[in-house]
Amino acid sequence: MPDPISANQVAIESGTSLGKDAWLRLKKNKFAVLGLFFFIFVTLLCFITPLIPGLLADPDSTDLPNRGLPPGEGGFLMGSDSLGRDLFSRIIYGGRVSLGVGFLATLVSLTIGTVYGSVSAYVGGRTDSIMMRIVDILYALPFMIIVIILTTFFGNELWLLFLAIGAVEWLTMSRIVRGQVLSLKKQEFVEAARSLGLSHANIIFRHILPNTVGPVIVYTTLTVPAVMLLESVLSFLGLGVQPPAASWGSLIKEGADHMRTSPWLLAFPSLFFSLSIFSLNAVGDGLRDALDVRASKD
């Protein structure tokens, strides 16, 4: 129905800027706002509390007489594991690994994807179609296999883990950026920049990429949980972080092994992990709706 929509547009056009308008729309999405606050809370919890001395028990110190205690007993907020380690403390430290890998690997994928996508779209023509065909082919590859081979063969180095995951997760990002650049390329201010004799790199980095920020933010928000999931799968399979260090994935694995005797060992790490993923997805979905971003394939 064209009529009521045009009435809405009048209201929007006469009012707020795009970013502010997006924020107003995001604010109306309760899930997204709740998710945002929860995720910020969890992130701060994981990165700040270990810095305060005496607040957390050592996540690696074992206390065999007090093993397998349920939450609240023996001074363990969330119980103790099969070696008497403080579960809460392990979750916090594990969260640093999970979130850290999530952020860093996303950064890697963001960098690769942005450069690849913008170059492909900007150069265009045959190069573009070949580059995108490569992405199509890579999309269908079982990257988990490559990641597993990399992590088992080169040792369980954390930096390798996020490098490998980041190298896997850049595909969607490159498609998003490409679609955005393609539509921007046709616009007049790029034409103007070119007629002023600016270099290609200058046009891409100064004039085009800043305008792709919206969609990139949305997919960055959605990439972090995807990466965290990948990391947790690897840790679950015993191929990620190695004991005694923990990530949420490896804690869930330990919990699953003891779920009949000490169900809290599965419950708490799962809760932290799932709620974090949930909140990030809610924020990403909310942002996507607020900014009206879509992945374009062509």
Binding site: L229, V233, G249, F273, L275, I277, N281, A282
Partner: peptide, 11 residues
Amino acid sequence: AMLGICIPTFV
């Protein structure tokens, strides 16, 4: 659906 996506298979 959101729950299904956020609770990993290993849970």
